[in-house]
């Protein structure tokens, strides 16, 4: 459920956000602020299916269908393809804001939660991947977490597997595959969205991921200009819960 945030908690949130935004600014990322809601038709082409079905949608006073943003990455891809169309890049953005999802995609998820994330547009392949992976690790370290782990896999490689094997992997059903998993196979990749690198960040104390990211080279083209893209997002509440669990 969504909840009110009261003083001690608000202070802790502000402190950790401050640490992370300082880090991202120093790394050359500029903050971008996108609207909380906008016209559904403007955004829908770039939304992966699982976000479309969980997004809050409503009609405004003129009868236009609106969407409460379920994700900020899609909005940034829209900006990059429209207002920033003529800029060649690379573009480095970070964002910090609430997103809204009606259905729980993960356990313990509020319908409204705060994401802090980055997008690196216009840097393809390993060079962009490495920059983003390093930055994600710095976010975890700067947050003050211990024993954090980043595990990665490749969505492109999974995409090329035979259908039966790919589906069993998507369901995380290794009994059906008849063999035990390699560590990289335990990551649940959204194959409609990611095209290459995919990674997840977690700590041993918690039963859920703190943040995830990867390469999605097909997204920007939907909004009018093809650009390679890679990024990540962290869930602020989960970072705070992980920190609290490690202090115990």
């Amino acid at each position: 459920m969504n909840k009110d945030l009261l003083p001690p908690e608000v202070t802790a949130r502000r402190e950790i956000l401050q640490k992370i935004t300082n880090l991202l600014e120093r790394a050359g990322y500029a903050e971008i602020v996108t609207p909380t809601f906008e016209e559904y038709d403007r955004l829908s082409a770039g939304l992966p299916e699982h976000l479309k079905t969980t997004a809050y949608r409503f009609f405004d006073h003129r009868g236009t269908q609106m969407i409460l943003r379920p994700d900020i990455t899609t909005q940034i891809a829209r900006v990059a393809g429209t207002r920033l169309r003529e800029q060649n890049g690379p573009l480095r953005f970070y964002y910090s804001g609430d997103v809204y999802r009606a259905a729980q995609l993960e356990i313990g998820q509020n319908q409204q939660f705060h994401q802090i994330g980055v997008e690196l547009l216009g840097v393809s392949g390993a060079r962009g991947d490495q920059e983003i992976l390093k930055l994600a690790e710095n976010v975890l370290r700067t947050s003050g977490l211990k024993n954090y782990r980043i595990e990665q896999t490749n969505a492109g490689q999974i995409q090329r597997l035979p259908a039966k094997q790919r589906k069993a992997l998507q369901r995380q059903d290794f009994a059906a595959l008849g063999r035990l998993p390699r560590l990289s196979e335990l990551l649940s990749v959204d194959l409609d969205y990611y095209t290459g690198l995919y990674f997840e960040c977690f700590v041993p104390e918690m039963g859920y991921i703190l943040g995830s990211g990867g390469r999605y080279d097909n997204l920007c083209a939907v909004f009018g200009r093809q650009r390679p893209a890679v990024g990540f997002a962290f869930n602020l509440d989960k970072l705070l819960l992980a920190l609290a669990a490690q202090k115990e």
Partner: peptide, 24 residues
């Protein structure tokens, strides 16, 4: 079936895999 938490399977992979191999 032997089942695992999706995140623990990753964060405690070595311990969990070792036990699963013995059970297998």
């Amino acid at each position: 079936r032997l089942i695992a938490n999706r995140v623990k399977a990753k964060s405690r992979y070595k311990e969990i895999l070792a036990l699963a191999q013995r059970i297998k």
